[in-house]
Design a protein around this nucleic acid. Structure first.
Lengths: 235, 235
DNA sequence: CATATAAGGTTATCAGACAACCTTACAATG
DNA sequence: CATTGTAAGGTTGTCTGATAACCTTATATG
């Protein structure tokens, strides 16, 4: 096992943890295998034991290793790691587009499921977000927040918690990125059109027509993509 | 702010982290608020600074706090926190079905995008997973792993990293859940059928026919759902 | 053979110190 | 006055060394 020295930069423990994590995920360390002792790692990496401990603690939090007092640290069985996406990943245009592209099929399906499964409460919450969107003339950031609330409400109406979690997460990231990048004037135009499309979608859901709801969501999202100058495949 | 002493049991840092996490998620500490200094917390909780540091490091890994050297630790804004889903959430049948339902539109879209965007390398990796699946007669767990690898390879062929991340995550959870719940005999039958469907999907991708690829994936997933006794909406 | 006991190794925790970095206040400079 | 430099104090980051708790293994003991 090789343990090259760590470059002096920022976040030593995170760097070390990432290195060991790579060793594990890329197969250089197999499940059940014992990590070197903290003492050894500290010597080998040229850092103190505190840093090594913090790195191992991070790996333990991520579920990649297990530590047993008096015995050592061991690579765990291929146990699913939590998914994790950082805001910074959306900095460039490519990532933004990719995430938007991921959003489309999820939201279309959610619209269809919402049409089938929504309750009276769900519909009321959707209507509330619509009212919040057209209520004031505070476009810009307010409009983005209201748009996000609408999409959340539709996702919640599916009755499937995972749609809520994933769509909420993705839509929120996209909203934040838009809000950070776009000028107020552009936002105003976007929001104007958005409201009409939201109402159309809401009506399709209310009439329990999954096909129409899906089409409405598709129209809405592809329209939004166009207004954001994103080119997405459509077929 | 109250900081009652921590009971002497196991995993002091985890206990402390959990306590602070509760303070944050239950609103007793608001986003942007500064945590007490490590020194103060150590004194107040009756533990050493190392323990406090490890607890705060865990919170940082979970995205609940941010630390700035020389300044302090601060509660993060909720939207800056990464999405995180634990394995335990899939214990009951309802959750399993819901996650499977979420998977369907994602994978269908991925199949279409893979047909459009795959490179020669992508296709080769897909073929490798097919070979791995039919290569041995070790069905059961091996078959599940190979199935997962196939779906990962297709997602990777989209060229969209987020499809890889999300589909990899979801499919892995489902695979683990299936592996834990099903008997070997049942798995064998499932895998038999799966291979044919995989090949069909592979051919559709290879001929760059997104429509056929989407249909193949849809057939495959809805068939899989049926074999798992899941009832999903289809329209 | 079965059971205690001792020894050594490893992680968990503690304690104290110094380094790196940030903020603030205030003086110096133009 | 506005800007820049500088010093002070506070906080996190890292280092060092030691002790406690725990496990494994080997050895002794009946």
């Amino acid at each position: 096992m090789e343990f090259g020295h760590i470059r002096r930069s920022e976040h030593l423990p995170a760097r070390i943890a990432a290195q060991i994590a790579r060793d594990i995920t890329e197969g250089r360390m197999r499940p059940g295998e014992k990590l070197p002792t903290e003492h050894f790692l500290a010597k080998a990496l040229g850092v103190s034991r505190s840093v090594v401990r913090e790195a191992i603690a991070q790996l333990r939090n991520e579920g990649l290793v297990e530590t047993r007092q008096g015995v050592g640290a061991f690579v765990t069985e291929p146990h699913a790691r939590p998914i994790r996406i950082e805001q910074d990943d959306l900095a460039d245009h490519q990532s933004f587009r990719d995430l938007f592209q991921l959003r489309v099929p999820l939201e279309i399906e959610a619209a269809g499921l919402a049409a089938l499964h929504h309750t009276a409460d769900d519909l009321q919450r959707i209507d509330e977000t619509l009212a919040g969107m057209s209520g004031a003339e505070k476009w810009t950031a307010e409009g983005i927040v209201a748009d996000l609330a609408f999409h959340r409400a539709v996702a919640a109406a599916t009755g499937n918690e995972y749609f809520s979690v994933f769509i909420g997460f993705i839509a929120e990231r996209i909203s934040l990125a838009i809000n950070a990048a776009r000028a107020a004037a552009v936002l105003e135009e976007i929001v104007e059109v958005t409201i009409e499309e939201h109402v159309a979608l809401r009506d399709a859901i209310a009439s329990r027509d999954p096909k129409r709801a899906r089409e409405a969501m598709k129209t809405h999202l592809l329209g939004a993509a166009k207004r954001l100058d994103l080119t997405l495949e459509a077929y």
